[in-house]
């Protein structure tokens, strides 16, 4: 089983991103679950979502304590939340960063999702859309297929720039 923990802030689309990643894995023929961890729903508050991907039906509902991958959609969260808590020794970290932030002791993949969204003018209510470029980055990491990534984005969003954002992230992320 591959376990992902996604850190975001309320309003950034982290919960939707988790659903889309799990949905893409489902389209790839895998079993997948996405679970948001809700507190009081408010904009700007740190939010955590969990994604599990497996070849067998998933029977676990509790939170992910030892993730294989930690995704950080907003690097300012790292100042208030220990995003690396419980990460597996060989676990990896994907950080949305405009300055190439790295963490010590783990393979880190910084990618400028915000920059990609802004360059395509993908903005809703003043916030850049981060979940569609994130899907592209996840596809590049090999966790979901390119085709499924494209399908879930075009099924969910009418604006074709979302597919373009995913493609750019796919190209920009260096593995």
């Amino acid at each position: 089983m591959y376990e992902i923990r996604l850190h975001s802030r309320g309003g950034q689309g982290g919960v939707t991103a988790a659903k889309l990643i799990a949905y893409a894995a489902f389209l790839d023929g895998k079993y997948a679950t996405a679970t948001p961890l809700y507190g009081a729903e408010r904009r700007g508050a740190p939010v955590v979502s969990f994604i599990r991907i497996d070849d067998e039906p998933i029977r676990i509902y509790s939170q992910i304590r030892n993730p294989d991958l930690v995704i950080v959609l907003d690097e300012s969260i790292m100042q208030v939340v220990d995003v690396l808590h419980g990460i597996k020794p060989d676990g990896t970290v994907l950080i949305n960063s405009q300055i190439g932030t790295e963490v010590e002791g783990h393979s880190t993949y910084p990618v400028d999702l915000t920059g990609i969204a802004l360059s395509l003018d993908l903005v809703i209510s003043g916030s850049p859309i981060l979940n569609t470029p994130l899907i592209g980055a996840i596809a590049k990491m090999g966790l979901i297929s390119r085709e499924s990534a494209k399908t879930v984005i075009s099924e969910t969003f009418r604006d074709e720039r979302n597919v373009e954002a995913a493609l750019r992230a796919y190209e920009e992320l260096e593995i």
């Binding site: 988790a18 659903k19 799990a22 949905y23 489902f26 079993y31 997948a32 679950t33 996405a34 679970t35 948001p36 809700y38 998933i58 509902y61």
Partner: peptide, 12 residues
Amino acid sequence: LDGFLLTHITQT
């Protein structure tokens, strides 16, 4: 159905 644990989890 368990609140959040099942109401909000996404599955096939």
